[in-house]
Amino acid sequence: MFHRPRLDVRRGLCGLIASLGLGTAALADDDQRADRLPLLPTYRQECAACHVVYPPGMLPAASWRRLMTQLPRHYGTDASLDPATVKELSAWLVAHAGTSRRVREEPAEDRITRSAWFIRQHDEVSAATWKLPAVKSAANCAACHAQAEKGDFNEHDVHIPR
């Protein structure tokens, strides 16, 4: 049996999606939109002092809760904040945490770089690249993602240092 009209409808929908600038991944993954969430000024102020402010959609709520309760031992650094700031940041991070299938699992040590989706996205990056002086570690997103400070991690804007 020949189903040509159904194929034409699919092509039309794909064309419409492409013309609107939407990828099928963006439609399927709620966290894509969360990655473009305007950052809470307190989050930018407190967290960007030491590292890239990761979009809250990169981790599940449980990971953010643990991270915010462990600030005195934040990956070997004392990142303690006053209780009111911790409460504000925790509420915002949990409210905007990742919920898609891709982010739902809690990564080892609550590290974004240890999450399955991160590892899949970076599987073509060699071990030697992570050790380059300009990169130093997988947590240094800005080394390759020129727009990381804006929360944009589009793979089309990646420039891996040599």
Rank of each mutant, 00 (worst) to 15 (best):
V94Y: 11
A91Y: 11
L27K: 02
C47P: 06
L37K: 09
L81S: 06
A128W: 06
F2V: 14
G57L: 01
W117Q: 07
S115V: 08
P133E: 11
H156E: 09
D78S: 02
G21M: 15
A95Q: 05
P72N: 04
C50R: 09
A28T: 03
R65L: 05
A25I: 10
G12N: 03
W64F: 11
P72E: 05
S63G: 12
L67W: 00
E106H: 01
C144W: 00
D35Y: 08
L71W: 11
L27P: 04
P72Q: 01
I17E: 14
A28H: 12
Q32K: 03
A128R: 07
H3R: 14
V125Y: 10
A84H: 00
V94N: 06
A91L: 10
S63D: 05
H96F: 09
A127K: 07
I119T: 14
L59M: 09
T42I: 03
C141I: 02
R6T: 15
D110T: 03
M68D: 05
K136H: 11
L71H: 06
V9W: 10
R6M: 12
S90G: 13
Q121C: 08
T129K: 02
H156Q: 11
R101W: 06
I112T: 00
R36P: 04
R101Q: 14
L37A: 09
T77H: 11
M1K: 13
A61W: 00
A25R: 12
H74S: 15
D30H: 05
L7W: 08
A48H: 03
C144S: 01
W64H: 15
A25E: 15
T77N: 04
S90N: 08
F118R: 02
K131W: 04
T42E: 15
D123P: 00
P72R: 02
R73Y: 12
P133N: 01
A97Q: 01
A97T: 10
W130E: 02
D152I: 14
H159D: 06
T99H: 09
V53M: 03
E88L: 14
R4Y: 13
V94K: 04
S100W: 00
T85Y: 05
P38Q: 02
P55N: 02
R162A: 12
Q121K: 15
A139W: 00
L20H: 12
A134H: 05
T24D: 09
Q45G: 08
D78H: 07
K136W: 01
S63W: 12
G12W: 09
K136L: 13
Q147T: 12
